[in-house]
Amino acid sequence: MRLARPVGLLLLLILLLIPELLAANGASSVETGWFRTYRINAVIVAAVFSAAVLYYTQRARRGDKLFVRKIAGLDEVEDAVGRATEMGRPVLFIPGIDEIDKIDTLAGLSILGRVALITARYETPLYVPVRYPMVLAAAQEVVQQSYITEGRADSYNQDMVCYVAGEQFAYTATVNGYMMRERPAANIMMGAFYAESLLLAETGNAAGSIQIAGTAQPEQLPFFIAACDYTLMGEELFAASAYLSHEPLMLGGLKGQDFMKVLIIAAILVGTFMVTTHLGGDWMRSLFEVR
């Protein structure tokens, strides 16, 4: 509430300055209008999606049972950490190599929270090398929070999460060296990966670690599938955190996405029928036209 007044004043200031902004950009409000009406289709899709997410989140909060099918690989996370505990070796978690403004990285950090809960519970050493300072800060927060939640705040060490290098292959070389020297029992790689994916996965394989990987980068998935024990493909990565936590907010998001998929399938069936039979196919396409 204390923030309401300054935020309101800021919004008012921006509103007052909008005509100035438009004038400086050499365009009058009459020419451009307030809304780009040709993008209304994106707004409708976003509104339907948001409504679906809110609806399912409410249902999850009410305690309704929302079914999520088994995702192969995710159940193995706890087993992998258990294996590391028995062997007295660390768990290596790589939250991808991209910045925090990548959705894959956010999904990876979300899964890191669940993995850190398990390592905190079993007191298994955890090592999280990161490539960007913002990811470092976020990952440290996530891991610390998990250790506090599990009642092991004293076991948390800030150096569990460390900045390695900003350059892609310098990062990879360092993590590969760590894999061969420390031989972690489990490597969990969840996030955005690029050309280094096979280098990491192959080295982990050579080090004898059990490997669970997940990314939404289609070019890198074949390498993870070839070199890892379990792989989360594409959207499975985003579904993972909801599956693991069963938190209403995340379940609502996952169910909302599934609802959208049903609508998309229906739209494709109708659109394809109309195009094939020449019964208003162009009209249907125009509804989904983007500029």
């Binding site: 994106a42 990548k102 998309i264 494709i268």
Partner: peptide
Amino acid sequence: VMGNTAGIYLMSELHGRLIPQIAGTFVNL
């Protein structure tokens, strides 16, 4: 940053990928 990312990506993915891909799948069988 995280909130901004989620919001910006939602619209850019809808506009840049999802909607064009749906339209691209309206094909003559």
